[in-house]
Design a protein around this nucleic acid. Sequence first.
DNA 1: CCTATCATGTAATCCGTTACATGATTAT
DNA 2: ATAATCATGTAACGGATTACATGATAGG
Lengths: 174, 174
Amino acid sequence: MSSAIALTPTSYIVLGLLEAAGPSTPYALKQGVAVSVGNFWSLPHSQLYAEPTRLARAGYVTEDREKTGRRRKTYAITDKGRDALRAWTSEADAALPDLRDIALLKVFFGADPATIGPPQLERYRAKVAEYEQIHRVLSTHGGPSAKGPLLTLELGIEVSRACLAFWERISQGD
Amino acid sequence: MSSAIALTPTSYIVLGLLEAAGPSTPYALKQGVAVSVGNFWSLPHSQLYAEPTRLARAGYVTEDREKTGRRRKTYAITDKGRDALRAWTSEADAALPDLRDIALLKVFFGADPATIGPPQLERYRAKVAEYEQIHRVLSTHGGPSAKGPLLTLELGIEVSRACLAFWERISQGD
DNA sequence: CCTATCATGTAATCCGTTACATGATTAT
DNA sequence: ATAATCATGTAACGGATTACATGATAGG
């Protein structure tokens, strides 16, 4: 039988994309991540080659390789995969995530806000604008399947605004 | 000579605590993390045994082991360590952190907000209260060295409030 | 005295990152 | 043609998590 593996967030990202987009190559997954989840959960493209392999080993997806030419691999979610995905989305989480903000870590350890703040502030400004842009596009076009992504964007916007306000404030000597 | 290693956020947490608290055992570091950085950047205690060892290998800290009894290890930051820490806090960051919120990931992939939201909401409520409590304590007692931690708390509070509002909103059918 | 809990550490596993490498397309 | 970029992968290394394990200390 197929060996058992632990499913990580990366696993669910792959499964989720495969369910939403149908059979895909790692490169297609990469594109998918870039325009969707990648906005708040990024991963290097190598993961999108490695992870489907792992998932295939355990039967959550099937792997299909071209016999000819570039020998591209295409992955498709299986029923087992769909079950795992649904079980995961149905379960509430145990704990809140850490902020894990390196800039904040520096401030914690005494970094000068005037140094750390301004670039940070600029990036959040850009991020907010970008999120709002995507949100506009998704809410006008984009059907009911855009519900999750839209909500996600909304949290992204609100959190980014909070961060923006913070870095703005501490950038000017308190 | 000592082998070179890459310094990770974990490294700087250890260095930062060692500078702030003076020579410490891994357990003391664990205590330190728990009441400070741990609130937004947690790590398992095993890291606080492994990481100082790594740092010692490269000369950022010294390791001192009791000859008798429990043979506890005590670590102290070196000048090289202090230099590295200062260099790090002086440099602005390159990129914003990802949110990496698993609950949000679930919503993105279509999870029912009514399932995911409420527990999330409760946790943020508690978190905000906890942060505010710590903030009160730190701002009345706690000298000028509490500046960084206080700022950190303030971002924590603002972000948590934003998240709280979000989960509250989506918990009730939109 | 016994059993929780605190304190202190090591071992194994593995995911994730970084780097390397090459085959196709497209633009100039 | 040829450079540049897109597409497609593999290899290696190491940090991080999880689990295991035992020595002290305090409470009942």
